[in-house]
Design a protein around this nucleic acid. Structure first.
Lengths: 228, 228
DNA sequence: GGGTATTTTAATCGAATCTTAATTAGTTAC
DNA sequence: GTAACTAATTAAGATTCGATTAAAATACCC
């Protein structure tokens, strides 16, 4: 999730500054608007991935601003952040188009968790794009993409399965019998050496060009994937 | 938004019954599971638009169930409903894939407002026209019109269904078995190759005349739709 | 009911992938 | 240090997989 831009509309300068600092430490890019008109202007002139709205603003109130934003860009996540905690306020907030509603005072961590949950849906498509990692190796289980140090590596189906099994069991020695059972559907009584061959395929694609080797042999035991 | 089906996993029967009644009065169709295993079973056997999860369940806990649901169907909204109100609990909930987290006791109206907000976002109920997009390809689910770079493409019913499934799962490899189950109602044990044939039909209509191909084959895995 | 459009089955061809097998290299144990 | 074993590597053969085409079966429409 790179370059997430957040518009924060909040009139209490101290709170706004604190939130901005906290969020920027997490890598978000935050822009503060101190009133509704400013919020509207910013929204119209820049591109944001998410909006955080206070309700009680000096001029335009948050509900109105939310509706305006929804009209103009119906898929941007809006999170309302306010001292108004009654059920009616919340319902009104949601009806104005909010995707989430958080009552002050709140824990910063909860805010972040909710922001991430919202972004998960809107930015990188849908939630849970599961990615396995070890060192600089990444496997995307959805798209079946594999990257080493950012370079794309294309694997065949079996290679992918084997690598997935190894990475899932990283820092743990897996025997050939384990692999045979999980990746191939065989019991490993057969005198085949497919596994060795495939380990070789993987090493060529994954380790060969990199000084840091990830696949290691434990003679007499099996293979292990680790960074050290 | 017609026929919204909600899965409610909640072990306290009184609460579950009360919620079900309340929601059904609003036109939702609710199914109750009294423990995690039951929830999992229901989830696997029926189609839902939203899941409401209690955390403290007799057997499997809500976090685990949430992760399981996310893996299987990553676009369904999950709302956690629980007595655990600490920030850590909430963060854990969101990390397990929840889209919203509501602490008991709560106002029924707030629950409804949050449910509606989630449904509004989830694909089916997006306001303002159901149009799926990827790159310069657009599918209007209402009018069943399909455009590539503004040029109208006419598809047959099955072609449309298949394309819709692929586009909904863009950037994700879908296996033939997935497709067989969702687009055709078959289990893919049959040795048919309809899917391959239809992929071929789609490619001719959608990709043939354009340099940027959208339908890609992952040999041994399935098909994926992506721009790159 | 006839004719067209759509869906499905079937068969072919070529290429990608998987597997086997044999050789070379490396490791362990005595 | 050498025998015995274990693993790495390579190349070739076997098999599967997918694209494509054509034809058959089914559904649809007037």
């Amino acid at each position: 999730m790179d370059e997430v831009r957040i518009l924060l509309v909040e009139d209490e300068k101290k709170i706004a500054a604190a939130l901005k600092t906290g969020m920027e430490e997490l890598g978000f890019h935050v822009m503060i608007a101190y009133d509704g008109a400013m919020g509207e202007r910013f929204f119209n002139n820049y591109d944001f991935d998410l909006v955080i709205l206070d309700i009680n603003l000096p001029d335009i109130n948050g509900y109105a601003l939310s509706k305006m934003i929804r009209q103009r860009k119906r898929d941007i996540p809006i999170l309302m952040l306010t001292a108004l905690g009654s059920v009616e306020d919340k319902v009104e907030g949601f009806e104005a188009g909010a995707d989430d509603y958080l009552v002050k005072p709140f824990a910063f961590k909860e805010l972040i968790a909710r922001i991430k949950s919202l972004l998960r849906r809107s930015i990188h498509g849908l939630p849970g794009g599961p990615v396995l990692k070890i060192a600089d190796l990444e496997m995307n289980l959805d798209s079946k993409d594999v990257f080493r140090s950012g370079n794309k590596i294309s694997l065949t189906a079996k290679e992918f399965q084997l690598l997935e099994y190894l990475v899932r069991n990283k820092n743990r020695v897996v025997s050939r019998a384990d692999i045979a059972g999980k990746v191939w559907d065989i019991g490993f009584d057969t005198g085949t050496n497919v596994i060795d061959v495939y380990i070789n395929f993987l090493r060529k694609k994954i380790d060969k060009d990199y000084p840091l080797k990830l696949i290691h042999t434990q003679v007499g035991m099996g293979y292990i994937m680790k960074e050290t």
